[in-house]
Amino acid sequence: MKNRIDKKLFGILLGYMAAYHVIYISRRVILKFMDESRFVDMDWSVVVFGPVLCNFLIIPPLIISILFVTKMMIRKNLSWYSSLGLHFVFSILYAFLVILLNTIYNYFVYGDPLELFSRAAFVNTLYGSTLNFLAYAGFVSIIYSYYYFQRISKAEIQKTQLAKQLQNVKMQALKSQLNPHFLFNTLNSISSLIEEDGYKAQHMIGNLGDLLREVLLVKDEDMLSVRREIIILNKYIEIMQTRFSDHLSVETNIDKAVEEALIPSMLLQPIMENSFEHGYSYVSTDLRVALSISKMDNWLKIQIQNNGTPIPVKGHNSGFGIRNVQERLETLFVDNFSFSFSNLKNGEGVITEMKIPLMIAQNDAV
């Protein structure tokens, strides 16, 4: 906390003082209407404006003093009984100063007798001490409450920032695991193709260069539009179609309404790769993969289906790519998503289904 005056807090304290005076003046007006002896001969302007003009001259400087003293106590982190004792002493001093300054004001403005140490002055001090004590207690309560909620607010902001930083670190770690894994598998595919068909291998290397360029452009982005993600995915699919030729067909069905919806970057590629890697077998030599992305209420629904080899019932390991996808979804959405990876009911293929919150991208330039 700095030593300067917090203008917002000072404004709140002045507002409290104004509300206090509304009640105080209302009481004086009621007593005037009831012909209470003390107010019978008092002019209405004095009844209404007398205490206001005086107190709005003398109390704001006292408020600033209370503000500085209370901030100092908070900064020094005094124990509650030390703070309570000091505030009790200062409340008495505050009440005395208000009465003293009121008496001096009335002497100069209304010509009232300046009796600072008379019996009447003592009675007047006692009469006003309760209200002044409550006013002081109100000022101090507001100050403590203000800084308490300010600390809580700052703590929540810091907590949110730390959580976001931790999320970013974890996402970067997961993506750094994914990229070498993807690159190794693609290079392995190219290597196996070189002896079989040098032209196709050369074509795959060109496609891989294009793909890596796209991946590098989005390496620091956690979320992309569906449109951008599909552009990147298509470059990977071109590489795989070059490798498997007529034995691979991929169909994509993207709802136009979700083209600008946000999706975790490089989310689809590991699942596609898993379909290619585990879908082929001696039995399944022609692989068909279907990708669909659509809107379902407030969710983005993603479905990838293939007619390849089913998942073994026992001893199945979902593989690095699928685990990476699940961990990234958990990091980004905690438990606000769904993910399933299972065999088709007819036993002729595998289906992966995901649902994530539907969020629309504002700007996502290609």
Rank of each mutant, 00 (worst) to 15 (best):
Y282D: 11
Q241F: 11
R288F: 07
E229K: 08
H247Y: 10
V289T: 04
I254S: 04
D297S: 13
M272F: 15
Q305C: 13
L262P: 04
I254D: 09
V283F: 07
P310E: 13
Y236I: 03
I254P: 10
I231D: 09
Q269I: 13
F244S: 05
S249Q: 12
P310H: 01
D246S: 08
I231N: 11
T285E: 14
M272G: 13
A261Q: 01
L248T: 02
M266D: 01
P312G: 07
N298T: 02
K314P: 03
P264V: 10
V313R: 09
V250Q: 05
R243F: 11
L267G: 02
T242R: 07
S318L: 01
F276I: 15
I271N: 02
K235F: 06
G279K: 00
T252S: 09
W299I: 00
I304A: 07
K314H: 15
L267K: 00
Y236R: 03
S265F: 04
T285M: 14
Q269S: 03
H316M: 03
N234G: 04
K301Y: 08
V258S: 01
N307H: 06
K235R: 01
T309R: 09
R228G: 01
H316F: 14
M272S: 06
M272R: 03
D297F: 01
N306L: 04
K314Q: 15
N298V: 00
I230T: 02
Q303A: 09
L262E: 03
W299V: 05
I230N: 05
I311G: 05
S294H: 11
S294W: 10
G308P: 00
V283Q: 14
D255H: 03
V258G: 00
E260Y: 02
P264H: 09
T242Q: 13
A257L: 07
V283D: 11
S284T: 12
Q303L: 00
I311S: 02
P270D: 00
Y280G: 12
S294E: 12
M266E: 04
I304Y: 03
E260C: 03
